[in-house]
């Protein structure tokens, strides 16, 4: 008998019946699909990520040309240069796209590292409790109250400006949020019976931590990660703005904005376009994260009129 390919919707429905993690994911996908914020945010993310990834293969002007023609400086936007040129004659549009590559790389790497550190520490603290928890939780609290930007600034200033240092600086400042989340989750789940049952069946601690606790937390982790990337982009661009982030000639939105300030009157496009795209990107990640958070909040279900 022929089995016709199941449509995406059908697959979703089957997963919903499956119960457990699959059901949870399917539920979220369905509710998320209906939430405007999630859709808009997700679309923005896809667009920006695509641009960032494809930058090298797109027909763009060279963002960091070796030879500069003074005649090209501060040209207004035209069909030749969609976003105009900057004070050194470089094509702003191309630099904005390449800047996306830089910012997104830094932000995602930083959040990834933060996430790993935070998840491991948080799970360990919440799961094992006792002295381990006391120490880790104390550390989390100390780092949590420190403004991430200030910490990142301190580290970036000390380590010296470079891409990897910025990633490192942001990671050190941001892990506390993830750790807190995971610790809370681990603490609640620890109470639950199936962990007991699992332990009774002889599963090792590590296995319990990862197979039981982690899947339940996927959704809030994604929310935090998304908002985290937005924050990381903000921090990275702020650091670049101050001169401790990515160094010229590597295109970075923050730095482009800094260079654009003296030209605000005569050539506002130098600062404006990077700024708008920057805002657009951050907004996208925020919308996605916030929308997802709304979707996960069960209280809002079912009201009408």
């Amino acid at each position: 008998m022929m089995h016709p390919r199941k449509s995406l919707n059908d697959k979703l429905k089957t997963w919903q019946m499956a119960g457990g993690v699959k059901q949870m994911i399917a539920d979220i996908l369905e509710r998320g699909g209906r939430n405007k914020m999630v859709i808009i945010g997700f679309s923005i993310i896809i667009v920006m990520v695509a641009l960032a990834v494809l930058a090298p293969v797109l027909p763009l002007a060279d963002p960091t040309p070796r030879q500069l023609d003074p005649a090209d400086q501060t040209l207004s936007p035209s069909s030749h240069h969609w976003f105009g040129t900057d004070e050194l004659g470089r094509d702003v549009f191309s630099r904005v796209i390449w800047g996306a590559r830089v910012s997104l790389t830094v932000a995602t790497m930083a959040i990834l590292v933060s996430l790993i550190i935070g998840v491991v520490l948080g799970l360990t603290a919440g799961y094992f409790g006792g002295v381990v928890d006391y120490i880790i939780a104390g550390t989390i609290d100390l780092f949590w109250t420190f403004p991430a930007f200030l910490l990142a600034l301190a580290f970036a200033a000390a380590l010296g400006p470079s891409l990897s240092n910025v990633i490192l600086a942001i990671s050190i400042s941001y892990w506390a949020g993830f750790a807190r989340l995971m610790r809370g989750q681990a603490l609640t789940v620890r109470e639950r019976l199936f962990v007991e049952a699992s332990r009774a069946l002889g599963a090792k601690n590590g296995r319990i931590m990862f197979t039981h606790i982690l899947p339940n937390c996927i959704a809030p982790l994604i929310v935090w990660a998304s908002v985290g990337v937005a924050d990381a982009i903000t921090i990275e661009s702020s650091l670049s703005f101050l001169g401790v982030g990515t160094q010229p000639p590597t295109p970075s939105w923050g730095y482009m904005l800094y260079r654009g300030i003296p030209y605000l009157e005569e050539a506002p496009w130098i600062a404006t376009f990077p700024g708008m795209i920057l805002l657009f990107t951050i907004l996208g990640f925020n919308l996605f994260g916030d929308g997802l958070r709304d979707v996960l909040d069960p209280r809002m279900k079912g009201l009408r009129r």
Partner: peptide
């Protein structure tokens, strides 16, 4: 609030500068 929250301070500052000062 969404837009204001997403806007990094320096960009907002530049915008306000552009609008009110320039």
């Amino acid at each position: 609030t969404l837009v204001a929250y997403a806007m990094p301070s320096f960009w907002l500052g530049i915008l306000l500068m552009l609008l009110f000062a320039v």
